[in-house]
Simulated assay, not measured.
Amino acid sequence: MIEPEPFRIYLMRHAQAASATPGGRDFDRVLDDRGYAQAEMVADRAADLGYVPDCLVSSTATRCRQTAEIVRRAVGETLDIQFVDEIYSGTPDLYATIISGQRPAHSVMLIGHNPSIDQLLEGLIGKEQRRTAMPGGYPTAGLAVLDYTAGTDAGSWTLTNLLSV
């Protein structure tokens, strides 16, 4: 997995999206009214807490793009967003590789999809801590804040905060 030095990861699941339209693609689903509200509340709370990533990497799916733009508005218009096609159907290992590729940034936000974002979180902090933090699963617009702590033998990831609606 990811083993940087001083580092923070923000893992955000896209906000709630409207149901797929008949004949429409899942990829094109947009945020519904509740999703916009979720994303705005979580993004505003993150900004209030000083959770501002050095860079943001997002899936190109419409609901992720919309969530990313809401985050940018809340934390700062100058935040650089990279949209990556592979996140849409990516594995937790791919998510980890994308995050690791953002060095020398000290903090990275990734906006992605379940189940991969949930599986990545579990891989970083462990199954028990993940279940305790999110007994009902990874919520839409959920933002996990993880900090890396270097240890004597090996470093570890700690769930510092979880923002959700």
Rank of each mutant, 00 (worst) to 15 (best):
M41R: 06
V71H: 01
L110H: 02
A68V: 04
L79A: 08
P53A: 05
L49M: 15
S107C: 15
S116D: 11
A15P: 10
Q102N: 10
N161I: 00
E69R: 07
P22F: 15
T160N: 13
T78Y: 14
T91R: 09
T140I: 04
F27G: 05
R103H: 11
T97V: 08
A154L: 03
D28Y: 15
A17M: 13
S59T: 07
L146K: 01
L79F: 10
L110M: 09
E40Y: 09
P92V: 05
D118A: 14
A39P: 06
S58V: 03
E77R: 01
L11H: 03
H113R: 01
D147I: 07
T78H: 14
P139F: 14
L124Q: 03
G112S: 03
S89N: 14
R8F: 13
V165T: 13
Q66G: 07
I87C: 02
A133V: 12
G35I: 05
A20R: 10
A74G: 06
A74W: 08
D44A: 13
A18M: 12
V165M: 13
S19E: 15
Y148N: 00
I2V: 15
S59G: 12
D26Q: 01
V108F: 12
T91C: 08
W157K: 00
M41W: 06
L49G: 03
R103L: 13
P4M: 08
A43F: 09
A150R: 04
S107E: 13
F7T: 02
I125S: 06
